[in-house]
Structures are given as C-alpha cells and as structure tokens.
C-alpha cells in the first residue's frame, strides 16, 4: 500500500473508533469515580469476642478466669436464642434442639456465616459486594440499583438472594428466600423461607458493626433484632479455602462424641 493510502486508512479507522474509545474512557472514569466513593473494608474479619480462638477451638472469653459475661451476648447471637418465637417458631426450635445430637453439617450457611469465627472478606465494587468466608461460602449483594427479583424467579437457597444499596458509608442489605437455616446447620435459627433479613453494616473505628433484623410471619411474634460486630484477627495473611469434608461428629445416645477413625 502506498504511504498516502495507508495514512487515509489509519485516519478512517481512527474516526470510526473515536466515539467508541471516548465512550469507553468515560465509562472507566465514571467507574473509577464510583469506586473512590465507596468504603474499603480490607482484611480478614471474625466476630468480635471470637477473635483469638486457640488451637483448641475456643475463644478466650470461654476460658478467661473472669470473663466479661456481657460479651457472650455477641457470640453466635444470630442463633436467635432471644427471639420472640410464636407457637410454630417455638415448635421448630424445640425440634431442632431435640435432634441436634450428632448432627453433621457442611458449613455455616446464612445467617450464621456472618456470626462465626470463620474469617470473612468484604469485596466491594460499585455494582456488587461479595462476602465470602474461608469455607467458600459466598453471598452476592447486588448494589447496581436492581430490585429484588420477582418471587417466581427465586427459590429457597442456603444463602438466599440479596440486593443492597449504600446509605452513606452503610451497606444496607435485603435478603429473601433463605432455606430454613437450621436445615443446613443445626445451630442456626429455624426461620421459615418467608423470612426477610435486613442488615445494615458499617465501619466503626477499627470494627465492622451490623444491625440485623429478621421478619418472619411464620415463626416470629415480632421482628428479631441483633447487633453484631467483627474485628480483624491476627495470624491470617491470605484466604485459605479448605472444604468442610471431615465432620466426625457422632453421638452415643447421651453425649456427642468423635466418630472413630478407620485404620487404613
């Protein structure tokens, strides 16, 4: 190709691509701006008062000689022991407790993954926030302005369906269609699949704090509310995901026990 023809061809391409390139740059700029306006919650978060868990698996508040008993209220508080259960709710609670001996599990599920010592990460983007723990349990909270999907487009799942939005630096999450939590994890509350969960999460100094509110016409006389918090624990330098595949919880009819290990 002659030099003049080459120049004309390059100019033509540039003119054709120009608007698209400019639009792409504008999109990138807008997204960068959106990112800059978002909170940043780096680190590995565990429920406050469960931090410092030892190799025994016990948090220090369980073994300190003179523990601050008020701290117990924030340990596994999403079990909803303080909920005002209605008749159906209490029936479910009694049933779950009655069959809890020796029950195995595959993970925490929701909401308990938000209230355990298993480290959480909060990955915040303009379009969604992903909350993931070290058992690969993940929640996807869409913050792109979409509404909750139509009821016919949802079905009960372990982690439910979540949409969210930001009110200043507070992440507000609405979650629906959570499979009855105690079906997945025996220490979880037996809310029905009609329950709605609202969370308001924000930074408070070096802690993350959240207000939980659960409304469930099937099991509760009134909404269950709980305040929980997380701190960055020491010793974690990356997310190490290991399957939950060796639950050896057994029961001898009276006490839980450890299932014997078969000799190879």
């Amino acid at each position: 190709m002659r030099p003049i023809a080459t120049t004309v061809a390059v100019l033509a391409c540039a003119m054709l691509a120009g608007p698209a390139v400019a639009e792409h740059h504008e999109e990138q700029h807008a997204r960068t701006e959106a990112f800059a306006g978002l909170p940043y919650w780096p680190g590995y978060w565990v429920s406050e008062h469960q931090a410092g868990t030892t190799i025994t698996g016990l948090a220090p508040i369980f073994t300190e000689p003179n523990p601050d008993l008020s701290n117990f209220a924030n340990v596994m508080s999403l079990r909803a022991d303080t909920a005002n259960w209605n008749e159906e709710g209490q029936r479910r609670v009694d049933h779950v407790r009655a069959i809890s001996g020796g029950r195995k599990a595959n993970g925490w599920g929701f909401p308990m993954m938000m209230n355990s010592a298993t480290p959480l990460r909060f990955l915040i983007t303009p379009e969604e926030t992903i909350i993931i723990n070290a058992y690969n349990e993940a929640r996807y909270i869409y913050t792109d302005g979409r509404d909750m999907p139509d009821e016919l487009d949802m079905w009960p799942t372990t982690y439910g369906t979540s949409v969210g939005h930001w009110e200043g630096d507070t992440l507000v999450i609405e979650t629906a269609m959570v499979q009855t939590p105690s079906d997945y994890f025996h220490g979880a509350p037996p809310f029905s699949e009609e329950a709605r969960y609202e969370e308001r999460i924000r930074m408070d100094g070096d802690r993350l704090v959240a207000e939980f509110k659960v409304t469930d016409p099937v099991t509760l006389n009134e909404p269950f509310t709980s305040s929980i918090s997380w701190v960055r624990d020491e010793g974690f330098d990356r997310m190490i995901v290991i399957d939950w595949d060796n639950d050896r919880t057994g029961n001898d009819g009276q006490f839980n026990t450890i299932e014997p290990n078969a000799v190879d």
Binding site: Q50, T53, G57, L58, A59, F62, L69, F72, A73, V75, M76, R79, D81, A105, W108, S116, A117, T118, F185, H186, G187, D247, T249, F255, N256
Partner: peptide, 18 residues
C-alpha cells in the same frame, strides 16, 4: 450465660463443647 455458651456451638467449632 455460661450454660448458653456451653450449649451453643462455640467459636470455630460447629458443635457444642459440652
């Protein structure tokens, strides 16, 4: 509270320490 703590799954454990 201590009773609750013993009955509840604790810390990283997924079952009671009772």
């Amino acid at each position: 509270m201590v009773g609750l703590a013993l009955a509840a799954p604790s810390a990283t454990a997924h079952h009671s320490f009772a």
